[in-house]
Design a protein around this nucleic acid. Structure first.
Length: 859
RNA sequence: GGGGACGUGGCGGAACCGGUAGACGCAGCGGACUUAAAAUCCGCUUUCCGAACAGGAAGUGUGGGUUCGACCCCCACCGUCCCCACCA
C-alpha cells in the first residue's frame, strides 16, 4: 500500500492541468456559458487562509459547473492600486509599482499552489496602463454624457496627511493613518452621477433573485428613497438678498406642518452664510459646527446646538403664524434642501432642540385612546399612529391621508410640490493620491476643463514620485502636470487627482470577458456577462457592489454592455478566524509558538520557548497585530492543499465564519488518507458469500444517495453538508471491504470509487486525479462529467416509520417505500408491540404521513 | 435612534415543505496494535433515573399560543452579532 504524498502528487497534477489547458474558457464552445468570479484580491504579498477559503469556494463552484457541462470562465487578476503601496513607498523608499509587481508575483505563485481551476491567460492588474488607460477612456465617455462632473463639496480632510479621506478611512473622527482630528472642508472634487440611477438601482434589486436578502436590504437602506413634500416658507419681514422666494424645506411628515414651531437650516446653507456676512456671532457659530467628526462617538456626544438668526418666516398654511429661523448643527446640507421645519411634538430631535431653546411644542397627532384636551408630549415625542388635530383643514384625518392632503394643498397654492428624495449621494471619486489611475483631464486657463484626447491615452503615472512627504506626489512632481492645452495650445495643467480604487473594481469583470480587446470592453463581453456567480465578503455589500451595479448601467447606456446587472448571483462568504494567544505581559504570540493541551474539558496553553502559561483569547479575524494569521503555505507543507481546502469548506456553512484549528485540518487530512486507502486497497480475504448481494446493494444505494445529496448541496452552496455526505460514503466503503474474486461487491466497489473520485474532485482536485488515475480511468477527472444518480437506487425500498401515540414516539414499523395509507394502517395495527401499547386505549384518529411517520391519537 | 440576522450536546454544526432532533467533524472516554509513544484501527459519547445494548423522563434561549405533531408558524420577553445613523 502506497502512502499518499501531497508534495509529490499535487505539483504533478497542476502541471497536467496546465498542459491539457482544461482551465481555459472556450470561446468557440457551444455549451452554455458560466461565468464564475471571486472578488479579485489586493496584492498585499501574502496569502492567508481567508483567501484560500474564498477562492476554494469559487473553485468548487467552477469545477462543479464545468463537470455539469458548462463552458466556464473563471479568471483572476489584481486590484492593484491603493494605499499600502504608497505606505511601503513612504516607509521604505521603494517604487510602488515595483513593490506591487513583486507582491503579485508572490501571490500568484501561492494562488497557483491552491490548485484553482483558473484561466490565467486572462490575468491583469488594475495598475497596468493597458487597464487604467481604458478606464480613462470610459471615464471620458461618462464625462461627455454628463455623468461625471466637478463640484465643490464638504469632505473629510486630514490636515496632517493633507488629503481627502473616504468615510471609511475616518475612525472615531480621526484620520486612520495620522490620528489627527478630521476636518470638514469644502473642496472641488470629481463626482459620478450615481444618483441619476437611484431609482433603477433600487428597483433592480427586486430582480436579483440569487442575491442574499441581507445585501439587498442594505443597498435599499443605503439608497434610502423617501417621498415627501418640498415647500417654501416666505419671510415675514424683508427677505435677505437672494432669498426673496423664501426658505425651501423638505419633509416626509407634511401631516405635521401645523405643529411647526421653528425652521432650522444647515450651517453650510447659503442662507446661513448670508446671515454670517453681517453677524460675527453667526459666523463664529458656523465655524464651530465645522469641526468635529461624523463618527458615531462624535455624533452621540455632540450636543444639539442652535443659533437664532432673528429672521422670521410665515407658516404656509396659516399666515397669522410666524416661525423663527435657526441655524442648527444637526441639519445636513446634502440631504433634502438643507433646511427643515421643526415639529417638536412628533420628532425627538426637534423636541430636544425645542426644550433646550424654549421653543413651543404643539401636538398635532393624537395617539389612539388619548383625549385631545389633556394629551401633552413631555420628554418623548409621539412618532406613532394617530389622528390629526389642532391642524385646520387636516383635522380628523389619519397620518397618510393628511400627508396627501397637505401635499395637494401646497401644490394647489403653488407653495411646493411632492418630491422623492434619496439618501444616496453622488459618488466622490477623486483622491489626492499618487498610486492610482490619473483622471484624464487638463485644466486650461482659457478653455476650462479639457479632456485628454483619446489618442493621448493612457495618461501614464510618472516614475520617480516622491511619497515621503504628505500630500499628493503627483501635484508636486516637477514636470508631470505641465502640459499644453489640447484645444488652444496654451500652457495648462493636468488634473493631479487620481480615481478612488473602487472605480477600478467597478468594471474589471467586464474586462476579464475580453481581456486583450482593443476597446475597453470587447465584443466577447456580451457573450459572458453577467457574472453567473460572484463570491466575496459582506463588507462590500454597499460599496463595491453598488458601484459595479451603477457602472454597468452607465456603460449599458453607452451601448458598451448588454446587461443591466453585473452579477446575477452573489454569495457572501464568512471569514476564517483563529484563537488569539498572549503572554501575561500582554504580548501577542503566534499560534506556532504556542502549545495547547487539553485538561479534561478545559484547555491550557504554554509558550513553547519559555514554558510560561499563555492566555487563550477568543477566535478573531486573522490580523497581523494579533499575530493569529495562518498562511496556507505552512499548512500545505504538512497536510497538502487538498486537506486545507477540505477543512475550510467543511467545518462551517460557507456564509459563516470558520475557526481555523490544527485539529480540524488533521481531520481533513484523515479523510484524504482514508479516501486514498480505498482506492489503493488490495482485495482482502474472502468475505462470506451469503452477505454479498446485500452488501453490494447497500453500497450501491449509499453511492446513489450520496450523488443526489452532494449535487443538491453544491447547487445551494452547502459545502459543509456535501463534505459530510462524502464522509458518510467513505465510511460505507470502509465497511464494505474489497473481497477476493467472484463477489458482487467487486462491481459495486468499482462503481462507488468511480463516483467518489468525481464527487471529491471539486473539493480536493489533486487527490481526485490521483484516485482517478489509480482506477485506470481515461483522461483527467477535471474534465470528466458529473455522475448521474439512479432515482430508484437513491431511495430505499423500505422505510422505517416511527409510530407515535399521542405525539410521543412509542415504536416503529417497516413499510415498503410509497406504501399507501391503507397498507401502513394495516401494518401498524397488526404490530404486536403497538397493540400492547394500545391496551385500554381507544384510537380516535390514525394519521399516516407517507414514507415519514405514523401518529395514533387516542382519546 | 432605525433596520436586520441569529440563539440546537463539551465545541463547529445537521435536520428536505410542520413529521425519528443532534447527521458529519472536532474534543473526550474505552479497547486493539506497539517494548513504548505517535500514527492507525474498532467501539461509546444530549442530559437525568437505571446494573442494563430493559424501560422511562426531560430536551433546540425564556414564557405563552396554533397543531394529531413545532428547532421550523404566531405573540411577548431575554441574549448575541451585523449594517446604517443627527436623513427631516
Amino acid at each position: 500500500m502506497a502512502r499518499y504524498e501531497p508534495k509529490i502528487v499535487e505539483p504533478k497534477w497542476r502541471a497536467a492541468w496546465a498542459d491539457a489547458g482544461v482551465d481555459r474558457a472556450d470561446e468557440s464552445s457551444r455549451a452554455p456559458k458560466y461565468y464564475a468570479l471571486e472578488m479579485f484580491p489586493y496584492p498585499s504579498g501574502r496569502l492567508h487562509v481567508g483567501h484560500a477559503r474564498n477562492y476554494a469556494m469559487g473553485d468548487v463552484n467552477a469545477r462543479f459547473r464545468r463537470a455539469r457541462g458548462f463552458n466556464v470562465l473563471h479568471p483572476m487578476g489584481w486590484d492593484a492600486f491603493g494605499l499600502p503601496a504608497e505606505n511601503a513607498a513612504a516607509e521604505r523608499g521603494v517604487d510602488p509599482g515595483e513593490w506591487t509587481a513583486g507582491n503579485i508575483a508572490a501571490m500568484r505563485d501561492e494562488l497557483k499552489r491552491l490548485g484553482l481551476a483558473i484561466d490565467w491567460s486572462r490575468e491583469f492588474a488594475t495598475c497596468d496602463p493597458e487597464y487604467y488607460g481604458r478606464q480613462q477612456a470610459l471615464f471620458l465617455k461618462l464625462w461627455a454624457k454628463g455623468l461625471a462632473y466637478r463640484k465643490e463639496g464638504v469632505v473629510n480632510w486630514d490636515p496632517v496627511d493633507m488629503t481627502v479621506l473616504a468615510n471609511e478611512q475616518v475612525i472615531d473622527g480621526r484620520g486612520w493613518r495620522s490620528d489627527a482630528p478630521v476636518e470638514r472642508k469644502k473642496l472641488t472634487q470629481w463626482f459620478l452621477r450615481i444618483t441619476d440611477y437611484a431609482d433603477e438601482l433600487l428597483d433592480g434589486l427586486a430582480g436579483l433573485e440569487h442575491w442574499p436578502d441581507k445585501v439587498k436590504l442594505m443597498q435599499e437602506n443605503w439608497i434610502g428613497r423617501s417621498r415627501g413634500l418640498e415647500l417654501a416658507f416666505a419671510f415675514a419681514g424683508p427677505a435677505p438678498a437672494g432669498f426673496e422666494a423664501g426658505v425651501r424645506v423638505y419633509t416626509t411628515r407634511p401631516d405635521t406642518l401645523f405643529g411647526a414651531s421653528f425652521l432650522a437650516i444647515a450651517p453650510d446653507h447659503p442662507l446661513a452664510e448670508e446671515v454670517a456676512r453681517g453677524a460675527p456671532a453667526a459666523a463664529a457659530f458656523i465655524a464651530r459646527c465645522r469641526t468635529g467628526g461624523t463618527s458615531e462617538a462624535a455624533i452621540e456626544s455632540a450636543e444639539k446646538l442652535g443659533f437664532d438668526t432673528a429672521l422670521q418666516v410665515t407658516h404656509p398654511f396659516d399666515s397669522t403664524r410666524q416661525l423663527p429661523v435657526w441655524i442648527a448643527n444637526f441639519v445636513l446640507m446634502d440631504y433634502g434642501t438643507g433646511a427643515i421645519f421643526g415639529c417638536p411634538a412628533h420628532d425627538q430631535r426637534d423636541l430636544d432642540f425645542a426644550r433646550k431653546y424654549g421653543l413651543p411644542v404643539t401636538e398635532v397627532v393624537l395617539p389612539p385612546g388619548e383625549d385631545p384636551a389633556s394629551f401633552h408630549v413631555k420628554l418623548e415625542a409621539w412618532t406613532g399612529p394617530g389622528r390629526i388635530f389642532n391642524s385646520g383643514f387636516l383635522d380628523g384625518r389619519d397620518i397618510e391621508a393628511a400627508k396627501a392632503a397637505a401635499i395637494a394643498r401646497a401644490e394647489a397654492e403653488g407653495r411646493g410640490e411632492g418630491r422623492t428624495v434619496y439618501r444616496l449621494r453622488d459618488w466622490g471619486v477623486s483622491r489626492q493620491r499618487g498610486w492610482g489611475c490619473p483622471i484624464p483631464v487638463i485644466h486650461c486657463p482659457a478653455c476650462g476643463i479639457v479632456p485628454v484626447p483619446e489618442a493621448d491615452l493612457p495618461v501614464r503615472l510618472p516614475t520617480g514620485l516622491d511619497f515621503a512627504k504628505p500630500g499628493n506626489p503627483l501635484a508636486r512632481h516637477p514636470t508631470w502636470k505641465h502640459v499644453s492645452c489640447p484645444q488652444c495650445g496654451a500652457a495648462a495643467e493636468r488634473e493631479t487627482d487620481t480615481f478612488d480604487t473602487f472605480v477600478d473594481s467597478a468594471w474589471y469583470f467586464a474586462r476579464f470577458a475580453d481581456p486583450r480587446a482593443e476597446a475597453p470592453i470587447g465584443p466577447a463581453a456580451s457573450r459572458w456577462l453577467p457574472v453567473d456567480q460572484y463570491i466575496g465578503g459582506i463588507e462590500h455589500a454597499v460599496l463595491h457592489l453598488l458601484y459595479a451595479r451603477f457602472m454597468t448601467r452607465a456603460l449599458r447606456d453607452e451601448g458598451l454592455v448588454s446587461v443591466d446587472e453585473p452579477f446575477a448571483g452573489l454569495f457572501t462568504q464568512g471569514m476564517v478566524t483563529h484563537e488569539t494567544y498572549r503572554r501575561q505581559t500582554g504580548e501577542w504570540l503566534e499560534p506556532a509558538a504556542v502549545r495547547v493541551v487539553a485538561e479534561g474539558t478545559s484547555r491550557r496553553a504554554y509558550d513553547i520557548a519559555s514554558g510560561e502559561p499563555v492566555i487563550i483569547g477568543d477566535a478573531e479575524k486573522m490580523s497581523k497585530s494579533k499575530r493569529n494569521v495562518v498562511a496556507p503555505a505552512d499548512i500545505a507543507d504538512t497536510y497538502g492543499i487538498d486537506a486545507t481546502r477540505l477543512f475550510v469548506l467543511s467545518d462551517s456553512p460557507p456564509d459563516r465564519d470558520v475557526q481555523w484549528t490544527t485539529a480540524g485540518v488533521e481531520g481533513a487530512w484523515r479523510l484524504v488518507n482514508r479516501i486514498w486507502a480505498e482506492f489503493d486497497a488490495q482485495p482482502a480475504e474472502a468475505v462470506g458469500p451469503a452477505s454479498d448481494e446485500a452488501a453490494a446493494m447497500a453500497l450501491r444505494r449509499a453511492t446513489h444517495r450520496t450523488i443526489k445529496a452532494v449535487t443538491e448541496a453544491l447547487e445551494t452552496f452547502r459545502f459543509n453538508s456535501a463534505v459530510a455526505r462524502i464522509h458518510e460514503l467513505v465510511g460505507q466503503l470502509r465497511a464494505t471491504p474489497a473481497p477476493a474474486a467472484g463477489s458482487a461487491v467487486i462491481a459495486a466497489r468499482a462503481e462507488t470509487l468511480a463516483v467518489l473520485a468525481r464527487l471529491v474532485a471539486p473539493f480536493a482536485p489533486h487527490l481526485a486525479e490521483e484516485c482517478w488515475a489509480r482506477l485506470g480511468c481515461e483522461g483527467l477527472v477535471a474534465a470528466a462529467p458529473w455522475p448521474d444518480y439512479d432515482r430508484d437506487l437513491a431511495e430505499d425500498d423500505e422505510k422505517v416509520l416511527p409510530v407515535q401515540i399521542d405525539g410521543k414516539r412509542r415504536g416503529e414499523v417497516r413499510a415498503p417505500t410509497g406504501a399507501s395509507e391503507e397498507r401502513v394502517r394495516e401494518i401498524v395495527l397488526a404490530d404486536p408491540d403497538i397493540a400492547r401499547r394500545l391496551e385500554g386505549l381507544t384510537v380516535r384518529k390514525l394519521i399516516v404521513v407517507k414514507d415519514r411517520i405514523v401518529n395514533l391519537v387516542t382519546g
